[in-house]
Each structure stands twice: as C-alpha cells, then as structure tokens.
Amino acid sequence: MKVSVDSNVCQGHTLCAMTAPDLFVLSDEDGHASAVGGDVPPNREAAAREAARTCPEQAVVLS
C-alpha cells in the first residue's frame, strides 16, 4: 500500500498526522500535510486507512 496527500485538497486540518504521525509530515509554515513517502509498512496499513477515513477534506489517497 502507498499513501499520498492531494495537496490541492488538503487544508491543514492535521488529523492525518494526529492519527498516524509516522506516515505524515506537516509543513512548518502552514500545517498542510504530505506523506512521508514509500510503501506503508504492513503493520501500519490500518493506521493509513484510518487517516484517510478521518480526513475532513478526503485528501488522503491510498493506492
């Protein structure tokens, strides 16, 4: 599984990083999120799904 954040949709709610701080990094300047990158470790796939489900803007993309 790969995870990414659609930067056109993210508005900086920060819930993804709150849910899975190891998978997302927030910009110092505006708090908008991006994925740390690479494959999601198998034991973190549930956390990635949870982050996607929680995002108010539905900006977290799983593939």
Partner: peptide
C-alpha cells in the same frame, strides 16, 4: 472515537486558521 471526520473547524479554503 475513531474516524472522527468532524467539520467543527469548517471545510475548504476557510478552515479555521486558529485551529491549532
């Protein structure tokens, strides 16, 4: 609660700038 996709800080470009 899990998956708490609330919109208390609004949604879209006007998301509460003071949320943090």
């Amino acid at each position: 609660r899990k998956g708490n996709r609330h919109s208390s800080f609004g949604l879209g470009i006007h998301r509460c700038i003071g949320s943090n």
